[in-house]
Amino acid sequence: MDLIATTLATLVLLSAFWLLIARRVGATVNGYAAQSIVLGGLAIALFAGSGQTDLLALGLLAILIKGLLIPAVIERQARPVYGLRELQYQVGFPTALLLGAGLTLIAFVAAGRLPFHPGLLSEPVLGMAIAVTLLGLFTTMARRDAVVQLTGLLAAENGLILVGLVISSGLGLLIELSLFLDVLIGVAVMSFLITRIHETVASTDTSELRRLRG
C-alpha cells in the first residue's frame, strides 16, 4: 500500500519536473493532465486501503475535473498556440533544473524537520507533495508563457491536494469542493485572459506585455 502510494507520488513529482522543462504548450498541458490523473489514482488507492469515501470522491473529482475538464478548457482556449513554436526559457535550462532540485531538497528537509502526525501516508510523500507545490510555483515564476504559468499554478495546487491527503485527510469534503470550485473559476478567468493576451500580442508570451513600469 505504502509502496503504491510512494510510487504514484514519485510520478506526480516527476511530472512537476516535466512541467518545468517542457518545450511546447501542448506537452505542458498533457503533463498536467497526467499528473492530475495519477493524483486521482493515488486518492482512489488510499480509499481502497482505508475505506474513507471522501477520498474516493476526491479521486474521481481530480480525474474528471483536473485530468479531463480543465485540460480540455485550456486546450480550447490555447488551440492557436498548441505545439507551434518552441517556448523560450526565462531561466536557463540547467539553472532551472538545479534550482528545481534545490527546491526539492528544501521540501524534503522541511517535511523531515517539522513534527507532522502522518495520517494514511508516510513522510516521504509529504516531502514530494511540498516539492510539487514549490516546483509548480517556480514554474510559474520561471516561465513567461501564459499557458505554462497557469499550468504551473495548477500543478502547485495539485501538490497542495497531495499535502492535504497526507496531513489533513479530515479537512472535510465541503472545503475540498469549494477548493475545486475556486480552481474552476480561476481557470475560467485565466483562460479568458489568455485568449485576450493571444488576441493582443498574437502569442501567449507574457514578456510581450511589459508597458507598466515604475
Binding site: 507545490t133 509548480g136 510555483l137 510559474t140 515564476m141 501564459a146 504559468q149 497557469l150 499554478l153 502547485a156 495546487e157 497542495l160 480561476g186 478567468v189 485565466m190 485572459l193 485576450r196 493576451i197 493582443t200 507574457t206 506585455l209 511589459r210 508597458r211 507598466l212
Partner: peptide, 18 residues
C-alpha cells in the same frame, strides 16, 4: 495595459494564495 495588469495580478496573488 489593463490586460497586463490583470494577468500579473492574477498570477502573483493566486501563487500567494497557494
Amino acid at each position: 495595459e489593463p490586460l497586463e495588469a490583470a494577468w500579473k495580478y492574477l498570477v502573483l496573488t493566486v501563487a500567494g494564495s497557494l
